[in-house]
Computed example of a mutant assay.
Amino acid sequence: MASALSRSTTSRVTADFNHLKNIRGPTGVYRSPARKRNPLAAKPLDAHPKDRIKWWNIVPGDRVRLVRGPYKDSNRIVEVLSINKYRNIAMFKDLSYPKKKNDPDAPAMPVQAHYSNLQLYMGKRSSHQNPTLTLGVFATRIHMTNPRYDIRQQRWMWDRYAAATSPILPGLQGEGGRRRRVTLSEAESIPWPEIPRKQYPPANLHDTSKNAVNTVTWKPMPPNVNPLTREILPPDVSATSVNFEETYIQALLQNRLSNLSPSLPMEIYLHEELSNPHSRAKKQKRWQVRMKAKEEERSEMIRKEMLDLRGRKRAVARREAIFRWNAKMKHDGKEARYRRWVQRGGLERTSKRSIRKARKGERRLRRLRNLVLQVGTKNQVVPGVETKTN
């Protein structure tokens, strides 16, 4: 939870809504009754999940002014450095808390302000009363379009508009120069700050040059040419229908690779053998084949029972077929598990364990046969020898 509270981001896009989750776990309490009994108890730093802002219209890179709080200044415009979506606060560039007197070397901490204490700066506009005068305009109310998810960029996208400004723009004025409620088409669009491009360090001797990356190092054979014999295939036969892998293996075993160009990569012949058989797609395909075979077997058993009812109703015959099919599936599952157990070396380990147990029993019997008891020793009795009792 502490890492989530201190997790501020400089990203200007909304990719997910993880900040709306309960970071205190399923048993977390945000409105603890203990606070009612003890007003001096520590107040949680994170906002309640239902109080957190979902759609942020003020993002890093925007220029704003603080209208409330200890650092409010209507004439000072600051740039948003980062935001913390768990606490609904923003941090600013070139605006930091004063350093402590007892620790002047400590790094400066940026000022934090709540989202509701900010007004978005829209730029300078000409005053409608005095066209020669330019004033800074701030958005006091922001509307937004319906968000849409961009699959290619993997983020949510929407447009923001100024529904109310300070000072009031001419298009947003009503009767008597007062502010009026406007529609989305009448509001002025506010562009998003540009996303800075990632700066890469200059290339050095350890980096691959651009020319080396763009150089073509593999030129496969044309699709109508057999890469083993270099013969042109007939028009009705494609290279994909020829089993080059089996042909290559047989030629390799029979030492008939004289016609093969050594510059051709091996992967074009052994792509199936060298590919990963445990990929998700291949495992899913094998599972689908097994499920299809089971379903076909189930349908076949039901069909056979329906052809030979023997005085039973069709529903009864169907239930009996399904019962036998389930029993067969359980039996086949046990056999498959046993085969996998044997393939993993379970049978060999069991036999070794039995042999070790037998040797251990033989050693125990040998020690008992070779045991010699001394007559007259306490806590020992030799059979067949009478002992005197006091």
Score class of each variant (00 low, 15 high):
residue 5 L to T: 15
residue 7 R to K: 12
residue 7 R to S: 14
residue 11 S to A: 09
residue 11 S to C: 08
residue 12 R to T: 15
residue 15 A to T: 15
residue 19 H to L: 03
residue 19 H to E: 00
residue 20 L to Y: 08
residue 21 K to L: 00
residue 23 I to T: 05
residue 24 R to W: 02
residue 26 P to M: 12
residue 28 G to R: 00
residue 28 G to D: 01
residue 30 Y to C: 04
residue 39 P to G: 00
residue 39 P to H: 01
residue 40 L to C: 00
residue 41 A to F: 00
residue 42 A to H: 02
residue 44 P to I: 11
residue 46 D to A: 15
residue 47 A to R: 14
residue 49 P to Y: 10
residue 54 K to A: 14
residue 67 V to Y: 00
residue 71 Y to M: 09
residue 77 I to P: 07
residue 79 E to N: 13
residue 82 S to T: 05
residue 82 S to D: 05
residue 97 Y to F: 14
residue 98 P to L: 04
residue 98 P to I: 04
residue 99 K to Y: 03
residue 102 N to S: 09
residue 105 D to I: 00
residue 107 P to K: 11
residue 109 M to G: 03
residue 111 V to T: 06
residue 113 A to V: 13
residue 116 S to F: 11
residue 121 Y to I: 11
residue 128 H to F: 04
residue 130 N to M: 01
residue 132 T to C: 03
residue 134 T to W: 03
residue 139 A to N: 04
residue 139 A to H: 04
residue 140 T to Q: 05
residue 144 M to S: 14
residue 155 R to K: 15
residue 156 W to V: 12
residue 156 W to K: 10
residue 156 W to T: 09
residue 157 M to A: 06
residue 158 W to V: 08
residue 158 W to P: 07
residue 158 W to R: 13
residue 159 D to S: 15
residue 162 A to R: 11
residue 164 A to W: 11
residue 165 T to F: 07
residue 166 S to F: 10
residue 166 S to R: 14
residue 168 I to T: 15
residue 168 I to N: 15
residue 175 E to P: 03
residue 177 G to H: 08
residue 177 G to F: 07
residue 179 R to I: 13
residue 180 R to W: 11
residue 181 R to C: 07
residue 183 T to L: 09
residue 185 S to G: 08
residue 186 E to I: 05
residue 190 I to T: 13
residue 198 K to L: 07
residue 201 P to E: 05
residue 202 P to C: 01
residue 203 A to S: 02
residue 207 D to I: 01
residue 214 N to M: 10
residue 218 W to S: 09
residue 220 P to H: 11
residue 220 P to A: 09
residue 226 N to S: 06
residue 227 P to N: 02
residue 229 T to M: 06
residue 231 E to W: 02
residue 232 I to A: 05
residue 233 L to F: 09
residue 239 A to H: 01
residue 239 A to Y: 02
residue 240 T to W: 00
residue 244 F to A: 00
residue 249 I to F: 00
residue 249 I to H: 03
residue 254 Q to F: 01
residue 254 Q to E: 06
residue 262 P to I: 02
residue 263 S to T: 12
residue 265 P to N: 02
residue 265 P to L: 00
residue 266 M to F: 06
residue 266 M to A: 06
residue 269 Y to W: 02
residue 278 H to W: 09
residue 279 S to N: 10
residue 284 Q to R: 07
residue 284 Q to E: 04
residue 285 K to L: 01
residue 290 R to N: 08
residue 292 K to H: 08
residue 305 E to A: 15
residue 307 L to H: 00
residue 308 D to E: 07
residue 312 R to A: 03
residue 319 R to V: 02
residue 322 I to E: 14
residue 327 A to N: 07
residue 333 G to I: 01
residue 333 G to S: 12
residue 336 A to G: 09
residue 336 A to T: 13
residue 337 R to M: 12
residue 338 Y to K: 10
residue 342 V to Y: 08
residue 345 G to M: 11
residue 345 G to S: 10
residue 349 R to Q: 15
residue 359 R to S: 05
residue 360 K to D: 04
residue 368 L to N: 12
residue 371 L to N: 10
residue 380 Q to A: 12
residue 383 P to Q: 12
residue 384 G to Q: 14
residue 390 N to C: 12
